[in-house]
Design a protein around this nucleic acid. Structure first.
Length: 427
RNA sequence: GCCCUGGUAGUGUAGCGGCCUAUCAUACAGGCCUGUCGAGCCUGUGACUCGGGUUCAAAUCCCGGCCAGGGCGCCA
């Protein structure tokens, strides 16, 4: 069993004997001395092999990326530029790596996306890639602990479903024994049903599937959605919960991940509340740029870039027209063309979509039909609204996109261990 | 779904009708080197996505397939 990590060396005293395990990232052999750069999940150490020591003669047999175990001592003085050094007394090869490697870990060559993802296990041995997932994990942990502190219960809802959440066009169809079924695009309907069950605050972290044939740096066909739903709440309550959750996620990331402030573009937790701008204000700003947005039209990428350039980081766009929002979104009492909805944006990237929901069953049924959907397919859902459904609100947050914008990754696929996109279902 | 671009050694590239027996880097193998650390130096190994077509001649031009990256739409 492994007892020490490479980074533990920083707390050890000179002369102490211990065993380090890891990957032989690089091997350099000179006439009178040899070096192995040993890597484990905590970092790098230079293992120095003196000519008169036993393992010197076997250095040439170790291939890059082989897994080795080194016993040795902590040196009096660290001479390596890596900042950590260890003097080998014996080395055993636990598993030899084949060569050449499918992609180099320390080679000074670029690697294409395709090659990287075809060999993702190897790609992730690069610290700059694996740390994305340490960041993602820490962000999620911060959000999760925050939601738990606010009285939320984490739930798991089905991913194989019989009806579409908001339509049918963009769902993956699967064979479910003798029936047709779909992979769920969102836990939306289930979250709401749980509100009717008397659990007042629920959240779920789980996969969402979209069969859209997009091919962009910000879309995945399978992504991780952080979804919440809260009873006796409106869209403003949901926005507060969201900005605080994000702030706690970032704060936990910055606090717990080594070197976080150096590879993140978000250097400190954002201040709350996040700026808010209404859809109509956006339209008016765009009009100042000579861009006309038609009534009830969605904002496109180019338009969102213009809006996004006015803000430092996160901001909300609120009160979207009802045309561009799903049937379960409630409208403003005084202006029924607009909804109690919001998107959380970071520049032009949409991270979250949320709203206060419709809780009156008759209005909800009408809205389903207005969207051209067959309300009888939603009976399992509508039924839960007829026996005491509180007013409620919630949101869905894309975890990969959140990670992407915080780390300023050029492509959202980088924030997914094994991305599923228009053409990739492997590995 | 529409549109654009690209596929050359393990990896990343140059070449874009004959000078290609295909460039360079990195990797790999061997050698040299007083502790190296993007080590350095020498020698060697290793490649034109697939199928048709045009041509005296195709890595290079045309068509199709497969694979990839991106733009739009749509969305998290």
């Amino acid at each position: 069993m492994k007892k020490f990590f490479v980074a533990d060396l920083d707390d050890r005293v000179p002369g102490e004997k211990l065993v380090l395990n890891g990957w032989a990232q690089d091997i350099r052999i000179l006439k009178n001395v040899g070096f192995i750069v040993l890597r484990d999940q905590t970092g790098l150490v230079q293992v120095t092999v003196k000519k008169d020591s036993g393992p010197f003669s076997m250095l040439g047999d170790i291939s890059r990326e082989s897994v080795i175990s080194v016993s040795g001592t902590v040196p009096e003085k660290v001479q390596s530029k890596i900042g950590r050094e260890f003097i080998a007394e014996s080395i055993s090869i636990l598993n030899m790596a084949e060569s050449p490697l499918p992609l180099g870990i320390v080679d000074e060559v670029e690697v294409d996306f395709d090659t990287r993802f075809n060999n993702r296990f190897m790609d992730l041995r690069k610290t700059e890639h694996s740390r994305i997932f340490r960041a993602k994990s820490a962000i999620l942990w911060g959000i999760r602990t925050f939601l738990m502190s606010q009285g939320f219960t984490e739930v798991q809802t089905p991913k194989i479903v019989s009806a579409a959440t908001e339509g049918g066009a963009d769902l993956f169809r699967v064979r479910y024994f003798e029936k047709d079924a779909f992979l769920n695009q969102s836990p939306q309907l289930y979250k709401e049903m749980l509100i009717a069950s008397g659990v007042e605050r629920v959240f779920e972290v789980g996969p969402a599937f979209r069969a859209e044939e997009h091919n962009t740096p910000r879309h995945l066909n399978e992504f991780t959605s952080i979804d919440i739903e809260m009873a006796f709440a409106d869209h403003n309550d949901a926005m507060h919960m969201l900005e605080n959750a994000i702030t706690m996620g970032i704060s936990n990331f910055l606090k717990t991940v080594p070197d976080a402030e150096n590879f993140s573009i978000v250097k400190k937790p954002p201040e709350t509340p996040f700026p808010r701008i209404t859809y109509e204000e956006c339209v008016s700003i765009l009009s100042g740029h000579g861009i006309k947005v038609g009534k009830g039209e969605d904002l496109n990428n180019e338009q969102l870039k213009i809006i996004g350039s006015r803000f430092e980081g996160f901001y909300f766009i609120t009160h979207w027209p009802k045309e561009v929002r799903p049937f379960y979104t409630s409208v403003l009492e005084d202006r029924s063309d607009f909804t109690k909805s919001f998107d959380l944006q970071f520049r032009e990237i949409e991270l979250t979509s949320g709203a206060q929901r419709v809780h009156n069953p008759q209005i909800l049924k009408n809205k389903i039909e207005e969207k051209g959907l067959d309300s009888s397919n939603f009976e399992f859902y509508l039924k839960t609204f007829r026996y005491g459904m509180p007013p409620h609100a919630g949101w869905g947050l894309g975890l990969e996109r959140l990670t992407q914008v915080i780390l300023n990754l050029p492509n959202v696929r980088e924030a997914s261990l094994f991305p599923r996109d228009r053409t990739r279902v492997f590995p």
